[in-house]
Write a protein that binds this DNA or RNA. Structure first.
Lengths: 157, 157
DNA sequence: GTGAGCTAATTAGTTATCCTAATAACATGA
DNA sequence: TCATGTTATTAGGATAACTAATTAGCTCAC
């Protein structure tokens, strides 16, 4: 009954994991995965902070800096810095908002759109390569947990 | 209802999420959760880099700096810096390895052990508070995905 | 034994992400 | 109109990571 399976074999036990156990292991996984991911980004020419902004702008064109900051859960000055760097890199353009002149509307340039697409592909490939080493049961377990994880993340919103 | 079950399948929905979809959304979740987590750490008096080292030393006392670096998937110089800071903070002590004098054995001080325990509790509490807002189905979905996520992370060995 | 080559740790210097506090410009409503 | 709130920026600093170069110690082939 009590099998301490260190291997990532079949994760299909009844499994009532204590929340302290979850709180212990999930963050560990997150931090390690985040670190791996950083290495995956750099060759694309986009860094960890820029990529989500690119994506965000694909779905919400003409965002203000505040909106971008809120979506990424960073403070305004942090987002200002990211956007400025991206502007210098030719990925985004800033335009004044005519209705509210305090705001700056940020939009993707053509190059930004290209890079966003390329980065998306590169990341998907990076991920797919890893998922290949998992059983289909494991992939499906992760898939099923995704909505819950997204819910968890959006709680602070 | 069509059910294409994987090996030893769980009695749950089919759900074939495209790997590109997973590769898109999972990293997003990771990065946001990581950011939330950073805020959770600071009040404890341990930072994001130190906490895993504390934990690692609970399970593997007398680790060398290299071993710690490998476990955290960071380069040696990064771990040297973390360990030095922790030594200055009185959380760990360094001792020479008598068998191999190139190595430095790192161990928890009494204070390090205390802080590790406190940090563990604080993080569990932070997490539990969040899990309270999820349904038990969601929590269980995350629990079931955890071994798979750990497997994913450990692929880079 | 001893020198070539490996491994462990450090130092120095750089980059990327974040933050807070202070300012400036604009908007809104009493 | 002016007090208060919002948007964005600047300045300055803390973390967290990296590469490259250096020092020290181990190992083994010869």
């Amino acid at each position: 009954m009590k099998k301490l399976t260190a291997t990532g074999g079949a994760p299909t036990e009844p499994l009532a994991l204590a929340s302290s156990e979850l709180g212990q292991r999930l963050p560990m996984v997150m931090s390690l995965l985040g670190r791996s991911l950083r290495h995956a980004y750099t060759p694309i020419g986009v860094n960890l902070g820029q990529y989500p902004v690119l994506n965000s702008l694909l779905e919400h064109p003409e965002s203000s800096v505040s909106e971008l900051a809120a979506r990424e859960r960073v403070k305004l000055p942090s987002m200002t810095a990211v956007v400025n760097q991206m502007e210098a890199d030719g990925l985004v353009a800033k335009q004044p908002d005519l209705n509210d002149r305090r705001c700056v509307r940020v939009s993707l340039t053509g190059r930004g759109r290209e890079v966003a697409g390329a980065a998306r592909l590169a990341r998907a490939a990076w991920f797919a390569e890893r998922l290949d080493h998992l059983s289909s049961a494991e992939v499906s377990a992760i898939s099923r947990a995704l909505p819950a994880l997204e819910h968890l993340v959006h709680l602070d919103h």
